[in-house]
Simulated assay, not measured.
Amino acid sequence: MRDTATAAAATAAAATAAATTAAVTATTRTVVSDGVRLACTDHGGTGRPVLLLHGLAGHTAEWDSLARLLLPAHRVVAYDARGHGASDRHPTDGMSSPSSDNSPWTAPSSSASPSAV
């Protein structure tokens, strides 16, 4: 019985160590677009890129668990939309006339269809 308990404890310790090792240190960067600081978290990975977008009142940290599941098969990036999480609001946000560019990045033209989940 003691051997079983010892083996179970060793298995649990190994699983915890593996989870800790699998948790890639995410890199958070800020970019400035239209005078607004936007926070972007790159979780790393080497496969097909995945951009995670949060919902209303959300923030990038909501995606941490999913990012760990997608690694290393995907390169996982998340960002805080304007006025959310660590990103700033634009001075004209909420006004009747939005700024000309609400997007922090411009997607290149491509013949490939984007993947959406």
Score class of each variant (00 low, 15 high):
Gly55Val: 11
Cys40Ser: 13
Pro114Arg: 04
Ala78Cys: 11
Thr11Asp: 12
Cys40Asp: 02
Thr21Phe: 05
Leu70Pro: 03
Asp3Lys: 13
Leu51Asp: 02
Arg89Leu: 14
Pro72Asn: 05
Thr11His: 08
Ala18His: 09
Ala18Lys: 13
Ala14Asp: 11
Ala78Tyr: 00
Ala14Arg: 11
Val50Asp: 07
Ala15Met: 08
Arg82Ser: 09
Asp42Thr: 11
Ala67His: 01
Ala78Gly: 10
Ala26Thr: 01
Thr21Glu: 12
Ala18Ile: 10
Pro91Thr: 00
Ala22Val: 05
His43Met: 05
Val36Tyr: 01
Ser87Gly: 06
Tyr79Thr: 00
Asp34Leu: 04
Asp64Tyr: 03
Ser33Asn: 12
Leu56Tyr: 13
Ala7Arg: 11
Trp63Ser: 09
Ser65Thr: 14
Leu56Asn: 13
Ala9Gly: 15
Gly35Ser: 02
Thr28Tyr: 00
Ala5Ile: 10
Leu69Ser: 15
Ser99Ala: 13
Asn102Val: 14
Gly47Asp: 07
Thr60Ile: 08
Leu69Lys: 14
Thr46Val: 09
Leu69His: 12
Thr16Ser: 10
Ser97His: 09
Arg48Lys: 15
His59Arg: 14
Ala19Val: 05
Trp105Thr: 06
Ala107Lys: 07
Ala17Glu: 14
Thr16Tyr: 04
Val117Cys: 12
Val77His: 00
Ser96Gly: 09
Ser109Cys: 03
Thr92Phe: 06
Asp34Arg: 05
Ser110Glu: 02
Trp63Asn: 00
Ala12Val: 06
Ser111Val: 02
Thr25Gln: 15
Ala22Arg: 13
His74Trp: 07
Arg37Ser: 13
Gly83Asn: 10
Pro98Trp: 08
Gly35Phe: 03
Asp64Ser: 10
Thr25Asn: 12
Ser96Asn: 05
Gly47Pro: 04
Ala23Val: 08
Ala7Met: 07
Leu71Gly: 04
Ser65Ile: 14
Pro72Phe: 05
Leu66Ala: 05
Arg37Ala: 11
Pro49Ala: 04
Leu52Arg: 02
Asp34Val: 05
Ser33Arg: 06
Ala57Lys: 14
Ala73Gln: 12
